[in-house]
Computed example of a mutant assay.
Amino acid sequence: MAESIGIASPPSENQTGNKLKITFTGPQETLIGPLVARATDARSAHPILNDTDSIRVMDQIDHDFDKFGIYKTQATIYALRALCLDRWTTEFLSSNPQATVVHLACGLDDRLRRVQADLTKVRWIDLDLPDVVELRNKLIPYPEGDYRLIAADATEKAWLEQIPVDRPAIIICQGLAMFLEEESGKRMIRQIIDHFKSGQLIIDHIGTILLSFQNQVDALVATGSSWKWAIDEPKTLEALHPQLKMVECLGPTEFGDHAFLPLGTRLMMSTYSDLPWLKYISCYMRFDF
């Protein structure tokens, strides 16, 4: 079912000081998990992402955060991955200072603020479903410059028609693909590349083994949501469009220094690279197109 499409207006100031009650369920509620991870990392003695603004956002929300099972280890792993995507985005903008950035399923992630994109040159678009955009508008300040917050279903085509194709584009798709039906996810990728013509796609995915164990993932159990699409060989995504060429693919052990992780977690992760079915149990990829 197609969602409504619109460009959100800048948020009005909340004068009441009351915390916002989250009523989302399913995949939309899972946006709380990454927020908790960013805030937990920011509060740690040695933050990696150091997204201190996530603490401010989290403190404005009334929700059961504990049910997501996000503790220091999970927060560290998430922060390393988010930092990687921030770095890839910054690298693209360094080479393409006048570009379009599209952050799909942005949730409550203020990646724009972290990468400090120059909105006098960069066109930045955050996109999520209408009720998520409504919540985001109440919690995250609307930046000045060439910025739009679009309320739409990322798998639909109509939202793309709002965005000019006069610049190279970088598409950031984190924490979305695995929740989509396979054909919807593939169609989304094709539509995006057909529209923008040139740029990069940053996307994460899971391996099929995780589909069998998702009933042990706290965030999924807590929200009643499920993963639907998985891949075991990331390079196969190149077949979705003739312009797609993989630039980089990182498995679970390849996101940088794991020194802050517990020894048991490090030992477990060290086995991933040696076992073919675990090498890409989760992965982050970037493609040129």
Rank of each mutant, 00 (worst) to 15 (best):
F260N: 15
I281Q: 10
L160Y: 08
V133Y: 07
M188G: 11
P143F: 06
I32D: 02
A230D: 03
M188T: 02
F289V: 11
T73Y: 01
R38C: 10
I140V: 14
E181Q: 14
A154R: 03
F287I: 07
N137T: 15
E181Y: 08
T90N: 08
I7L: 04
K138S: 13
Y78A: 11
L220V: 00
H195K: 13
W88K: 01
M58F: 05
T73S: 14
A45C: 08
L176N: 06
A37H: 01
L220S: 00
D118C: 00
T271H: 05
Q162R: 14
E254P: 11
A42E: 09
L49R: 04
A169L: 03
G6V: 02
L237I: 12
D153L: 05
V132E: 01
N50D: 15
T16M: 02
L267Y: 08
L80P: 09
P97N: 07
P234F: 06
I125T: 11
V122H: 02
H241E: 09
R113Q: 14
E181R: 11
I5F: 10
G224A: 06
A177T: 13
V132H: 03
V165N: 12
I209C: 09
L127E: 03
E161M: 08
K235C: 09
D166V: 09
H103S: 12
T253R: 14
L237D: 03
H195P: 11
S270C: 11
V165R: 14
Q200V: 05
M268Y: 10
D153S: 15
T52M: 05
T90Y: 02
T90V: 13
N137H: 04
I193S: 11
D166Y: 09
T265M: 14
R43I: 04
E182C: 05
D232V: 06
V57D: 05
P242F: 04
V221A: 08
F196L: 11
H103M: 01
K228N: 13
A152D: 10
P97R: 06
S12H: 10
R286Q: 10
L160S: 10
L275G: 02
C106N: 04
Q162S: 14
D131P: 06
P130A: 06
I48K: 07
T23R: 05
A82H: 12
V217I: 15
L139Y: 07
L93G: 00
N137W: 00
D146P: 02
I203C: 05
I32K: 01
S270V: 04
F68A: 00
L119G: 03
R123L: 07
R266Y: 09
G145N: 08
D128M: 02
V132R: 03
D153N: 15
E91C: 07
S44M: 03
I171W: 05
P141F: 08
E233R: 11
T25W: 02
A75K: 03
G207Y: 11
G264V: 06
D109L: 02
M1H: 12
R148A: 13
T100R: 07
L31N: 11
L104H: 05
G6D: 12
G17V: 09
P262V: 02
R266H: 06
D232H: 06
Q15W: 02
M58N: 00
H46M: 09
Q98N: 14
L93I: 01
G224T: 04
S226F: 00
A105T: 01
F255W: 12
L83M: 08
S270P: 11
D110L: 00
D274S: 14
D66V: 04
T120G: 14
P34N: 07
I140H: 07
I193L: 13
Y272R: 03
I5A: 07
G185K: 04
